[in-house]
Simulated assay, not measured.
Amino acid sequence: MQQPFGVILAGGLASRMGGGDKALLPLAGRPLLSHVVDRIEPQVAGLALNANGDPARFASFGLPVLADPVAGHPGPLAGVLAGLDWAAAQGGDSIVTVAADTPFFPGDLVPRLLLAAEGGAAPLALAASCAAGGVHLQPTFGLWPVSLRDALRQALASGTRKVRLWAREQGAQVAEFPAPGLDPFFNINTPEDLARAEAILAR
């Protein structure tokens, strides 16, 4: 398998943050998106951003901006499809998706997703954090093969919206990441979460 392309999912509505672009919120003096780019860019063959609306607001990042190919904000699966179509046009055979509001995800995310996917029916894997409370699937962090893009397009057209359900139906494997302290997939949903992330980076 080739090195995957990367797609940052930023197509949500950020309702718990009062709307707007969470990805552009300042964190430690830089946009939140900058922290995410720094983590994923070294792990992938190329990088794009899934976001809706005017792409010019992300111009300073120098990334291709991919709008959802399905209207009505159907959720992360639409961003996955946008990424798969983009990667196919680049000659890629897979993508890894990450969430734009999760600044501390693992620096070895991609190799461990690739390892988990080996031996599966398709090279498809989702990340999960593991702590004393159990295993928690992180469905926006996944390895997705371009070969499934037509099946995903049909699923979205028929009303499928749940990432983990569709991924499970395709035989997704799970890559487990230990989370003994801070969950590496801690994401920023509220102003309190943003303050917590600031405190973590200050330490």
Rank of each mutant, 00 (worst) to 15 (best):
A99Y: 00
G159H: 08
Q2V: 06
P76I: 09
V146A: 05
L143A: 10
D108G: 07
G171I: 12
K22D: 05
E118T: 10
L194P: 02
S94T: 13
V70W: 00
Q90N: 08
L13W: 05
R164P: 00
D150Q: 11
A116V: 11
G29Q: 08
T190G: 02
G79R: 10
A45Q: 07
L84P: 00
R16G: 02
G46V: 14
V110W: 04
A199L: 06
R30M: 08
F5M: 06
A202R: 14
A89C: 08
A172H: 01
A151V: 05
N50D: 01
E118Y: 02
N52L: 11
G171V: 04
P191A: 13
R168E: 15
L137E: 07
L27C: 03
L124E: 02
F104R: 10
K22N: 04
L115D: 12
D101R: 14
V146Q: 04
L126T: 09
G11T: 11
W86F: 03
S147A: 15
P31K: 14
F185W: 10
E198P: 00
P31H: 13
L137A: 14
V7Y: 01
M17I: 15
S15Q: 15
D101A: 12
P178Y: 05
L25V: 12
G20N: 01
A155W: 02
G72F: 04
P191C: 11
P55K: 11
V146F: 00
T160A: 14
G142A: 15
F185E: 06
L84Y: 00
N187M: 04
D193M: 09
L126D: 05
P69K: 06
A100C: 08
P106Q: 09
V44T: 13
P31Q: 11
V7C: 04
A127F: 01
K162Y: 02
A175M: 12
D85Y: 00
L143Y: 03
A167P: 00
G142I: 09
D193T: 15
V98T: 10
G171Y: 01
L81T: 02
E169K: 08
L109A: 03
Q2I: 05
L27F: 01
G53T: 09
V80M: 13
D21H: 13
A197D: 02
P139D: 05
F141S: 10
D68M: 06
A117Y: 01
